[in-house]
């Protein structure tokens, strides 16, 4: 009976594994973008002060200074964080849907070959996938533990198991698929990836 269930589940791995990896990375990018949002607000304040100084120089443009208040600046900062997160999802999470599973040994061999390829800019995407996956695994574990906060022992056990499982079973595959996908990309996308994913990967570490 148990074997039959396992067999049935095995048959649909091709759909749930890519979806799960995509979701794991999406959770990680959100955790990172939430950290980025606070920093963006400070940057938006600086940019607003710069434009206020320019626009206030002429009476025609002076009313524009009052156009952007604190509420608008906060809204804009959050919107930037959202756009950043969705761009990272497009670069990092969506390609994971194309994951085609192979034997673990084969995946390792392919990964070794791909890592040695030049330019090394291609490694930005898999490196970001690794950090974001870890942040995602931690966020999922935190959510589980928080949901079960009234049952601390069970919550702690479930969260630790999920963290361990995600780190061991899903994160390496996400990194492999990112490496595979990045290797097939043009360098221009690699540069774009660096600009978008670099700060987010650092923020992912800060979110832990």
């Amino acid at each position: 009976m148990e074997l039959r269930v396992t067999e049935r589940v095995s048959k649909i791995r091709w759909i749930f594994l890519p979806l799960g990896m995509c979701a794991l990375v999406a959770v990680g990018t959100h955790a990172a973008a939430d950290v980025v949002g606070d920093k963006v607000l400070f940057a938006v304040d600086r940019v607003d002060a710069f434009f206020d100084a320019i626009f206030s120089s002429w009476s025609v443009t002076a009313p524009l200074v009052d156009l952007v208040g604190l509420g608008e600046r906060t809204f804009f900062a959050r919107a930037v964080a959202l756009a950043w997160e969705l761009s990272a999802d497009a670069l990092l999470a969506i390609p994971l849907l194309g994951y085609d599973e192979r034997a673990a040994a084969d995946e390792l061999t392919i990964a070794r070959v791909l890592v040695k390829r030049r330019p090394s800019l291609r490694l930005v995407q898999p490196a970001a996938a690794l950090l974001v996956s870890i942040a995602g695994a931690a966020a999922v574990a935190r959510l589980l533990q928080g949901t079960l906060l009234h049952y601390p022992l069970i919550g702690g056990f479930v969260a630790a198991t999920a963290l361990f499982g995600l780190f061991l079973l899903l994160a390496p595959r996400a990194v492999f698929r990112s490496l595979e996908h990045a290797s097939a990309q043009k360098t221009a996308i690699g540069l774009l990836g660096l600009a978008i994913l670099g700060p987010l990967a650092i923020a992912a570490v800060a979110s832990l």
Partner: peptide, 9 residues
Amino acid sequence: LCALCLWAA
């Protein structure tokens, strides 16, 4: 694990 990730996302 995948179901948990999908729930969270």
